[in-house]
Design a protein around this nucleic acid. Structure first.
Length: 313
RNA sequence: GCACAGGUGACCGAGUGGUUAAUGGUAGCAGACUGUAAAUCUGCCGCUCUUAGGAGCUACGGAGGUUCGAAUCCUCCCCUGUGCA
């Protein structure tokens, strides 16, 4: 097959994906496609560990600073925008390098989503209200009557997923499980090379602890305060890791040292969940180390070069 | 050094004679995930075996004791916190 190459770098937060991507991009005429559910928001800077301004000047970055912190952005939006960016990069004859941290978004990009219905806020809030007034089990039983297969798949306590399943049946008239069976909508026209970073767990956790401290000294609290003042405190993007704890601190919920510990904890837990997700990702060439490791950078460069060469054979 | 209050599994913290390897919570590990995903949720969590139903061992500061039976009651000792010296 003579398809163009798409490089995907995946791994937990703090594993050095950005560093590796820049290294490869510099040498292979690449452009970066961020795959991060929070980097798409403008004005969220410190807490999202976005690539720095200098890093972004080295080569084009896409899917960063796309929408306002008050906007609603979903996996479907991501998938559409990222695919567009990738195709445009290809038209420029450059190498797209996807830097993936958000598992669902990466899957939405590569595999596509099922042909479901978009969110509908009013229906959701009505369902959520019922769940709190009655019980999570009540909603789950309701789902069991309309879409028994989905109810079997989703735990009764997982209200968020029960609500989505209900939303789909009610709005589309088709059970979500039926729509799943009809398949997804995978990205076409690329050979995908997946490079995974999996540093030693203790080293990663230490790195995340350090990074969280740096976020605070870089002004996470001040940034959060400014965002709160501009957009109010109920903005969804401010409920994400880091900003949520900073907001709680600003509300006087706990002292600064506790806020820092909570952010560190949150990042460690998040990294672990990412690893669980990425382990299921198919055909990943795993490297056990950080993306900043020179040895790993060189190895990955060789792997990618080799793949590029295969195309010309 | 007298007076109280305490010492419980990695941590916090319930439990005041027996269905107690010991409620909860946190951390840790593993897992799920199809439009909130930095979200949401699940399982395991003293040790060793196991034909997976269980079996054995070690545990509630230490040492004794009471009792058929003790994390729980008694005695002494060690340690910690607060108050008085």
């Amino acid at each position: 097959m003579n398809l163009p190459l798409l490089v995907v770098i995946l791994g937990p937060t703090g594993s050095g994906k950005t560093t590796l991507a820049l290294f490869l991009g510099d040498r292979l005429d690449g452009e970066i496609v961020s795959c991060d559910s929070l980097a798409v928001y403008r004005e969220l800077e410190i807490g999202t560990a976005k690539p720095t301004r200098e890093e972004r000047q080295r080569m084009p970055h896409h899917l960063i600073d796309l929408v306002s912190p008050t906007d609603q952005f979903t996996a479907g939006d991501y998938s559409r925008c990222a695919r567009k960016a990738i195709h445009e990069i290809r038209e420029r004859r450059r190498l797209p390098v996807v830097v993936g941290g958000t598992g669902l978004y990466l899957r939405a990009l590569l595999e596509g989503l099922f042909a479901g219905v978009p969110r509908s806020e009013d229906l959701r809030s009505r369902l959520r209200e019922r769940a709190t007034r009655r019980s999570p089990e009540y909603l789950h039983r309701l789902l069991g009557r309309i879409d028994p297969a989905a109810a079997k798949n989703i735990h009764a306590n997982d209200v968020a997923k029960v609500i989505r399943a209900l939303e789909v049946v009610i709005r589309s008239g088709h059970p979500i499980t039926e729509l799943w069976r009809e398949g997804r909508d995978p990205l076409q026209g690329f050979r995908i090379l997946r490079l995974g970073l999996n540093p030693d767990r203790d080293a990663l956790y230490e790195r995340l602890n350090q990074r969280a401290r740096e976020m605070f000294s870089a002004g996470l609290i001040e940034e959060t305060r400014a965002l709160q003042e501009r957009y109010g405190r109920n903005v969804r993007s401010l409920r994400s890791l880091g900003y949520r704890q900073a907001s709680a601190y600003l509300d006087g919920a706990f002292p600064l040292d506790k806020a820092i510990l909570a952010v560190q904890q949150g990042h460690r837990n998040y990294a672990k969940r990412q690893l669980t997700w990425f382990r299921r990702e198919p055909d990943v060439q795993w490297r056990s180390g950080f993306g900043s490791d020179l040895q790993i950078q060189r190895e990955c460069l060789e792997v990618v070069k080799h793949e590029i060469a295969r195309k010309d054979r």
